[in-house]
Nucleic acid binder design. Structure first.
Lengths: 241, 241
DNA sequence: AAGTGGTCTAGACCACCAA
DNA sequence: TGGTGGTCTAGACCACTTA
């Protein structure tokens, strides 16, 4: 509140404190934060300043507020998490999402390749868990997923008994890793042998390849996911404003 | 401020008034709006309420604010408009955008097809203008664009002397159509004869097909655009939060 | 009835910009 | 110097929830 160069507005400082506390698990998902009044008293700022910080948290989907009830850490429920980052939908339906089922998953533990280490910001040869599975849409196999995560963030993930349809709720509830941002790069490729085997697709069929890096609340790189989609009956939908 | 069922917060009402005035051209792009104080006095609300409405306009990219100067209607400058909706970037660069040049455009006026009329919410057989062009990236043709717009919204567009690299600034400055939202559907397809001719691509090459509907400020459907991209050196980048 | 978030106001002080 | 937006405060009233 004194030196010029590193000046930060009060509400931004409050925001940072709250983000850190949530990241540290001070309040678990679905738990209520203290009320505006309580936070204001504790941090010695006005209620309006706390409110401005909380509004920013709402805008980033880190908390949800309910009039009369309180402010709650956002929860990655199954359906919620599923649709937050799942962009596939039926054509010409204004982005009406489609619900994918998940085929059986195959898990293995191994060392990261050079490109994986690069993309996940790991040391070369660090241990990772690779998960492979197919996703069915309307009962037909349509997408293959290869998921690579650092073992360090998810110890014993490869020995989990059953992997849920949406891994992100598992990441959050079991490992405390809260996925908040996903960056995706899309390109068109031709089906490979694995696509042909997993999805029963003829050679030469064009596929949409989606490479995702998922980041946790503190910006840590938590997951590399490569999806290959048969887009003959389904599209990847985006909306900008 | 009296009946319950259709209650709208004051700041929302202020927001709606300002959106309507901007849409009507009360202040042209790059022009300054009245100051917070002036708006508050005119609309008989407090400055804080006006501020909350303006903050919402900023969040939707409809206005820009500059401390000490004022609040200005957002302008779709060439570069600005270019990067707002252009998602192509180099791989592994965290979405660092690539600057596309525009090849020569071919324009024609014709009747809308059934699917075009459907997607643009036009009557069957309404007049449209179709624009075809290729885009070069690093000097090599990489994307073809087919753009279809209602003639009614853009009279004489087909007789424009030179089409700019970014059509949206032309839409805004000449026709008063302010593109604020774009919905895109992506799929992987194989190159067709036109791709092969325009881009010099071999048959059987996978292409990323992007179908965009662009909406104006009032939600009117202003443009249908189909891009076909060679994604061997370039990717379509998206980030969610 | 008590506690929560949602809205609205009024006023203060600041940093920035232009004349 | 005067006007602008940016921040911060304090307090009021409301609507919603829970008990």
């Amino acid at each position: 509140m004194e030196s010029m160069p590193d000046f930060q507005p009060l509400y931004k400082q409050v925001y940072d404190v709250l983000v850190r506390r949530i990241a540290e698990g001070a309040w678990l998902p679905a738990e209520a934060l203290p009320s505006e009044q309580a936070l204001a008293a504790e941090l010695k700022v006005s209620q309006g300043t706390v409110r401005k910080a909380l509004d920013a948290l709402v805008a980033e989907n880190l908390v949800q507020r309910h009039q009369g009830k309180g402010t709650f850490v956002a929860e990655h429920t199954q359906e919620h998490a599923l649709f937050r980052f799942f962009r596939l939908s039926r054509p010409n339906t204004d982005g009406e999402r489609v619900t994918p089922e998940s085929g059986p998953a195959r898990c293995k533990r191994r060392a990261a390749t050079a490109t994986e280490a690069d993309k996940l910001h790991l040391k070369k040869g660090a241990s990772v868990v690779e998960i492979n599975r197919a996703r069915l849409i309307d009962g037909t196999p349509t997408v293959t997923e290869k998921i690579v995560v650092p073992l360090k963030l998810f110890p014993e993930l490869d020995h989990q008994t059953a992997l849920p349809n949406t891994l992100y709720s598992l990441y959050q509830s079991v490992y405390g890793v809260n996925i908040t941002v996903a960056k995706e790069e899309l390109r068109a490729v031709l089906s490979n042998k694995s696509d042909q085997k997993e999805l029963g697709i003829e050679p030469g069929t064009p596929m949409l390849r989606v490479e995702r890096i998922a980041l946790g609340i503190a910006g840590e790189r938590a997951e590399l996911r490569i999806s290959r989609c048969d887009t003959r009956n389904i599209v990847y939908a985006v909306e900008f404003s």
